[in-house]
Design a binder for these strands. Structure first.
Lengths: 186, 186
DNA sequence: GGCTTAAAGCAAATCCCTTGCGTTTGTGGA
DNA sequence: TCCACAAACGCAAGGGATTTGCTTTAAGCC
């Protein structure tokens, strides 16, 4: 049990910042628990007891890092909002560090709790955009439809085929979602 | 450089089988490089020099394990073929061991070469199905369309929201791919 | 068959991870 | 306010994993 205030909170904060600083300074490969602990002014055993593992610690930090810190911008209509959001999402997530954070988040717990949190972040952002569209009386898809049609393909490419991902791909996914037509034939 | 035949190949094979056997016997958590090396009749330093890391070794094994060993079944028409393939894909990949293999494959190399291989396997299977459909004069989508509309959403759910994944989801994705219509509204 | 070199074996040194035990520090009750 | 309890941390030792220089083996090539 992590006590809300006092020493526990201080330790958690200093360890998290130590991880972020060292990730930038020495890179992921050179990162070790003793290194993080020393930078945080803590003993390694403390880190091992609280997080159990370097991977879980990294997963923890990654989830915090992937939390969007701002509401999606309002561009006046659904298509513009979704397109802008998808392009920014792709831009942030497809970078080497973005991919590293995603992979770390995926690894934390085997049942995918941390990864589920990241998915929930994206769903929240989408939901905010769709709610605005409904308020504007626009024809609006469901959140799940956007997740399937835009977020999932973007994430799939980011994780499995990161080479040659252009913002145009995000735009195209949004366009095909909003303008349904017969599937492109081979 | 891995020499094609002879001792190198023997070492690679025995290490791979040792990993698969021990994964089944002791589980992933108890798996260590010295353990694998001993089972394979090899010294740990050999494993470290060839693979560098337990994670890369697991990624290597995972890619081999995820390679489909058979062509997709022929059910007579595109919809049946795609539905059957998607259901089987979901069934295999969503299991705990399937998810573990996918995650291992994702972790191997930071630039995603191993993960790209897995994606290529899926694309090959899809392509075989679509080629048959074209031969039958059916109206056939492009491989990329199927990857975006079926494979990516399935993989996204498997990785980020593994709870409550039913075969019906795979069926629905195929149906929506083949019967385009206005997006479900919220 | 002998030569060259990539790859594996060996062993020692280092470092990481684990764990038992004592100490510190929040938290809740008298 | 003070006291008692429990959670979390520090310390230190032990076991095991990882690294590395050197030697030895065996494919591949004349």
């Amino acid at each position: 049990m992590v006590r809300p205030g006092g020493r526990s909170a201080r330790v958690q904060a200093s360890v998290h910042t130590a991880v972020r600083e060292l990730l930038a300074e020495v890179g992921r490969d050179a990162l070790t628990v003793p290194l993080v602990a020393h930078r945080a002014g803590v003993t390694p055993s403390t880190v091992y007891r609280r997080w159990g593992d370097l991977q879980e610690l990294l997963s923890d930090v990654a989830v915090e890092r992937l939390r969007p810190d701002t509401a999606p911008e309002d561009h006046g209509d659904l298509r513009s909002d979704l397109t802008a959001w998808a392009e920014q999402f792709l831009d942030e997530m497809a970078s080497p560090s973005g991919r590293a954070y995603i992979r770390d988040a995926l690894l934390g717990d085997p049942d995918g709790g941390n990864a589920g949190q990241c998915s929930a972040y994206a769903a929240e952002q989408i939901d905010a955009i769709l709610t605005r569209a409904i308020d504007r009386q626009e024809n609006t898809p469901a959140v799940e439809t956007v997740m399937d049609g835009v977020v999932a393909p973007l994430m799939y490419r980011i994780l499995f085929r990161p080479a040659g991902l252009a913002p145009a791909y995000a735009r195209r996914l949004v366009a095909e979602l909003l303008d349904p037509r017969a599937g492109r034939t081979a």
